[in-house]
């Protein structure tokens, strides 16, 4: 059984999504990749729970 949340958890999801895209506006591919790396580290630290992080990594491997 998974511990990671699988139900929709972001209230204003359209707002979030457009903010995420806006942050990439005008960035080169390289800059976008670097941005994403920083974002992943910031979010991972906020989550902290190693079980959740491991499950997230496994889920992201699914294509």
């Amino acid at each position: 059984m998974r511990n990671i949340k699988l139900n929709a958890n972001i209230k204003n999801c359209d707002d979030f999504y457009s903010k995420l895209l806006a942050a990439h506006d005008g960035l080169s591919d390289e800059e976008s990749e670097n941005f994403n790396s920083r974002l992943i580290l910031i979010l991972a630290n906020h989550i902290g729970d190693e079980r959740i992080l491991e499950e997230a990594i496994e889920m992201a491997k699914e294509k």
Binding site: S37, R38, I40
Partner: peptide
């Protein structure tokens, strides 16, 4: 790899401002 270089540099950049990194 390129990805590990990116994460490494992201850690270093974040650690300048934020203790968590």
């Amino acid at each position: 790899s390129k990805a590990s270089m990116r994460f490494r540099n992201a850690v270093l950049a974040l650690s300048e401002k934020y203790e968590f990194a």
